[in-house]
Design a protein around this nucleic acid. Structure first.
Lengths: 244, 244
DNA sequence: CGAATGTTTGAAGGTGATCAAATGGGGTGG
DNA sequence: CCACCCCATTTGATCACCTTCAAACATTCG
């Protein structure tokens, strides 16, 4: 209670809503036939995951592409020294598992951050479909290309930004991604621990906590646990563009 | 001369050889028809670049995929604050420019580090080819997938490794890549400034210089300007796996 | 209610950045 | 051929940011 009172200026944030992406808005697009007749469903398996549940593990054979129908997942790589690092965050409508197409072997773990529904499209089915429909092949190429571009952006975040800039970039990125899916770019749930955020940003969880507190104290961000509200987006964007 | 004498234990390193990858060993594989009759050459343009010359610039329209026939190039992104960061290094046989397939717009600058010969395959030609040859489409998907996986690896380097580990990872990565192309994994040319290496690794050039000096003083690496020799690869690998 | 995990905040320490100086190397023009 | 300049590299000294260690409080779940 005392702690709650210290969070002065925090607005009452609306509760998260159970949400799922419509298949027409999903990145997979026509590669997925989930919305078609039941006859094709053998190729598109939909799996439910509880919070913290693992969808697949690095090193195991990969036989499908995945799309987030509902929920939020992370991709994490094992470190040579024994830890793990988060290398990807996937919200509804996102496709993941693209890093194992060449090797047919998972390069990361995929873990649900909250209750999820994940669509799995058999790789063999996708291959066959793309032989018949060049447009589908082109679409997957676009997806892959965007993933490469996104990864380059994250390299810049990790290589050139200060701690505060990384947290700002993280918040703005998630905000943009929610907006693309038709949800509020202003208020959303992080759905993950400070440790996960830190791992994704190359920071410790204490630093993440401190940076978020700084944004809060500046009046630019409202924080209630894992729920955030961007009170002053331009100010947060200015943090990013400030020469480091 | 005094400096040269301080480099105790340095072996006489062989001079770099003018080298180019054979088209059969190139990552592009059957996507490229450069080795075919002259009739197809309209689609595959080969361009010569001098050291420091720019192949393309971020933000400009992209109309081709690129492969390094000879030489060494870097990809760099512009930072919000006004600098640049190296996000990719391309040796002979490598394909690059995959990040602009979706947007048909270059996401990075591409700059030659040494004299280069670059093959440019028109995107329209590639698209048409892949409609006819599904195997070519599958091959490009493999390429893209490997790029995604490689980017994730670099995220780990930038997010979780110490300065010394990053330099070790950099040297081992280049060594492996030269080996794949049939060149010595032990002795090779970095072909770039310490500043470029630092930018790629999220470090300052002074730190890169210091870390390389440490590896040299440990007797694991011979350094002569931009030419290096891995004297004790297992020791350098041990630096990487040491828990950070 | 108690244990375990997550978050915030504080204090101290270390790694890498910054600032600075000297040497080396490559290129151009005298 | 040498002098000169410019850039790259090395190394040193100091500093700052982030990490590490620590404690208190919150939250969740059995």
């Amino acid at each position: 209670m005392i702690f709650r009172m210290k969070m002065a200026g925090i607005r009452e944030l609306s509760r998260p809503v159970a949400a799922q992406v419509s298949c027409t808005a999903c990145e997979l697009g026509r590669l997925c036939r989930a919305e078609m007749a039941a006859g094709d469903e053998a190729f598109v398996h939909r799996r439910r995951l509880g919070p913290g549940e693992t969808l697949f593990t690095a090193g195991t054979p990969q036989s499908a592409l995945y799309a987030v129908h509902a929920g939020f997942l992370k991709s994490a790589k094992h470190l040579p020294g024994g830890g793990t690092q988060v290398v990807g965050l996937h919200i509804m409508g996102d496709v993941f598992g693209l890093d194992g197409i060449a090797t047919r072997s998972h390069a990361t773990d995929a873990v649900a951050l909250v209750s999820c529904e994940v669509c799995a499209i058999a790789l063999g089915h996708a291959d066959a479909l793309m032989e018949v429909e060049p447009a589908s092949a082109a679409h997957l190429r676009s997806l892959l290309s965007r993933h490469v571009a996104r990864a380059d952006e994250q390299m810049v975040t990790l290589g050139s930004l200060t701690a505060q800039q990384r947290v700002a970039a993280f918040l703005l990125d998630l905000s943009d991604r929610w907006a693309v899916r038709g949800y509020s770019p202003r208020t959303f749930d992080l759905c993950m621990t400070r440790k996960d955020i830190g791992s994704y940003l190359g920071l410790t969880f204490e630093t993440v906590s401190r940076m978020m507190s700084e944004l809060r104290e500046a009046g630019w961000l409202a924080v209630d646990g894992r729920r955030v509200e961007l009170l002053d987006r331009p100010a947060i964007e200015a943090v990013l563009s400030a020469h480091s």
